[in-house]
């Protein structure tokens, strides 16, 4: 029988950061955050063992793993998801997935959001951006999508607030939109709380990657479809 208030280990490698946090008894017990463009495969596990040790928790005391499933760097998503799935197998724990856009959105202060549509733009290292719109109360207005910045105007009505690491690129295409003061990258402290809330509500995502783009490959001429 899962506890009503399980301890959560959360982590994220979806963008140019790596973070891990433990949430227990309603409070963040330990957290690490590092910005880095590459090398999450080296950093993540030591970071997780550090936050577990600092929180004074052993694996059987955890009740949930929270992880960002995307959109973001394909390699980063696989680093975090392979870790989450390996841990879920080894510890017999459920995994609650949240999106990178949600994690960034939940870092935007309430006072900035009031009366605004929030557009979170995550850098996809291509021409298009990963975008998701939220109402002022953070209700998602649509699922995340890969879109050109110019097409984003159609996603939001009224005053627009922008957040995320591709926020400046999006702002350049949306005259009149404001940039949020919120941290532009997901943080495991927020992921942990969000994963717990979504898990309790039964709305958590499965630990499957949200790539939003097919593999970058074209079939040779004359080849039958896959």
């Amino acid at each position: 029988m899962p506890s009503a208030d399980p301890a959560v280990l959360a982590f994220d490698c979806s963008t140019t950061a790596c973070s891990a946090a433990v949430l227990a008894g309603g409070a963040v017990r330990a957290a690490r955050f590092r910005t880095l463009a590459r090398g999450q495969a080296e950093v993540l596990l030591p970071m997780i063992t550090e936050v577990m040790a600092e929180a004074g928790l052993d694996w059987p005391e955890l009740g949930l793993i929270g992880v960002v499933v995307g959109p973001g760097s394909f390699t980063g998503l696989r680093i975090a998801l392979a870790t989450a799935r390996g841990m879920a197998f080894a510890a017999g724990l459920p995994v609650a997935g949240v999106t990178s856009c949600e994690a960034v959105a939940h870092g935007v202060p309430e006072v900035e959001r009031r009366g605004q549509t929030l557009l979170v733009a995550v850098d996809g290292k291509r021409e298009d951006l990963f975008l998701q719109p939220f109402a002022a109360d953070l209700t998602p207005l649509a699922p995340p999508r890969a879109l050109m910045a110019e097409a984003a105007a159609r996603l939001a009505e009224g005053p627009v607030l922008i957040a995320g690491d591709a926020g400046e690129r999006l702002a350049a295409a949306l005259p009149g939109a404001r940039l949020s003061s919120a941290p532009p990258l997901p943080d495991a402290r927020i992921v942990a709380a969000l994963a717990l809330a979504r898990w309790r509500a039964g709305t958590a995502l499965p630990p499957d990657p949200l790539y939003l783009r097919p593999p970058d490959v074209t079939l040779p001429p004359g080849a039958p479809a896959a």
Partner: peptide, 18 residues
């Protein structure tokens, strides 16, 4: 490397928990 990372992280995760 994309595939190597998946197996490496799976192994590390199982090692960490056990």
């Amino acid at each position: 490397i994309g595939g190597v990372i998946v197996g490496a992280m799976t192994g590390k995760a199982i090692a960490a928990v056990t």
